[in-house]
Simulated assay, not measured.
Amino acid sequence: MKTLGLIGGMSWESTAEYYRLLNELTRERLGGLHSARLVLYSVDFATVERLQAEGRWTEAGELLAGAARSLEAAGADLLLICTNTMHKVADQVASAVSVPLLHLADATAAAVRTAGLRRVGLLGTAFTMEQDFYRGRLASSGGLDVLVPAAESRALVHRIIYDELCVGLVREESRAEFRRVIGELVAEGAEGVILGCTEIELLVHPADSPVPVFPTARLHAEAAITAALTE
């Protein structure tokens, strides 16, 4: 099994989910006492969030590129950035190392295509929903038609992610708000909904949506284990 290198801590709440998923999937596929071979570099999310808010993306990319180099030096054969938003700097990170980076949006687009869907809603941080680095990747690599919520709903989703989910707060009233926003996307024609922030999976489950949901952390983890077990 190849060694996976995780760039995590953004937030550590979702990175903990990655660790659980990667080990559970390894045990499911290999059986017995098997667990995932991985190394983790966990950054200080407060630093990353400040760089995001100030639009200092190149500096944020340098920070993650340094983490990637450390993981490669530690023996990682394949890298994962354990957050959707920071895939804005994925090219900068990938160019800093010689081992491959498994792009989260590609794993997600593949799952949507496998489900036979094309028009999907996207929930995530404001950066992910509003900028082209993620939506454009879904469209170009997956041929998907991506819908996002209206401005007021985007602001609500962004606030819940940063103020609640990233600090471990899972509230029923926020789940109800996400259900409402999902309903709006479905009314606009969404055939499925991408949970395009790894923390959203802590709050929203398949039963909360009338259409299929695509949990990006799980999909990323599944693709990583498949790649790690492929010679």
Results as ranks from 00 to 15, higher is better:
residue 1 M to H: 13
residue 9 G to C: 08
residue 9 G to S: 04
residue 15 T to R: 07
residue 16 A to D: 08
residue 17 E to A: 14
residue 19 Y to E: 07
residue 20 R to Y: 02
residue 22 L to S: 10
residue 26 T to E: 13
residue 29 R to G: 12
residue 30 L to I: 12
residue 31 G to Y: 00
residue 34 H to T: 01
residue 35 S to F: 08
residue 36 A to K: 09
residue 36 A to H: 07
residue 36 A to N: 03
residue 37 R to Q: 13
residue 39 V to K: 01
residue 39 V to Y: 02
residue 41 Y to E: 10
residue 43 V to L: 05
residue 43 V to E: 10
residue 44 D to H: 03
residue 44 D to G: 06
residue 51 L to A: 08
residue 51 L to H: 05
residue 52 Q to H: 11
residue 53 A to Q: 15
residue 59 E to N: 10
residue 60 A to L: 15
residue 61 G to W: 04
residue 64 L to E: 03
residue 64 L to M: 14
residue 70 S to Y: 04
residue 70 S to C: 10
residue 72 E to I: 07
residue 77 D to Q: 00
residue 77 D to V: 05
residue 80 L to I: 13
residue 81 I to L: 02
residue 82 C to V: 03
residue 85 T to R: 02
residue 88 K to A: 12
residue 90 A to W: 00
residue 93 V to E: 04
residue 104 L to I: 15
residue 106 D to Q: 12
residue 109 A to G: 01
residue 110 A to H: 07
residue 112 V to G: 00
residue 112 V to S: 00
residue 113 R to H: 06
residue 117 L to D: 02
residue 118 R to Q: 15
residue 120 V to C: 13
residue 126 A to G: 12
residue 126 A to E: 14
residue 134 Y to A: 10
residue 136 G to D: 14
residue 136 G to W: 06
residue 138 L to N: 00
residue 138 L to G: 09
residue 140 S to Q: 15
residue 140 S to Y: 05
residue 143 G to D: 00
residue 150 A to S: 10
residue 150 A to C: 07
residue 150 A to D: 12
residue 151 A to C: 03
residue 155 A to R: 14
residue 157 V to P: 05
residue 157 V to R: 06
residue 158 H to P: 05
residue 159 R to P: 00
residue 160 I to R: 01
residue 161 I to N: 06
residue 162 Y to G: 00
residue 168 G to T: 06
residue 171 R to F: 08
residue 174 S to I: 01
residue 183 G to C: 08
residue 186 V to C: 09
residue 186 V to G: 03
residue 190 A to E: 06
residue 190 A to L: 11
residue 190 A to H: 12
residue 191 E to D: 04
residue 193 V to I: 15
residue 194 I to Y: 05
residue 196 G to A: 02
residue 197 C to D: 08
residue 197 C to R: 05
residue 201 E to R: 14
residue 202 L to N: 00
residue 204 V to Q: 12
residue 204 V to H: 03
residue 206 P to G: 01
residue 207 A to W: 12
residue 211 V to E: 07
residue 217 A to Y: 05
residue 220 H to P: 07
residue 220 H to K: 08
residue 224 A to E: 13
residue 229 L to R: 09
residue 231 E to L: 12
residue 231 E to Q: 11
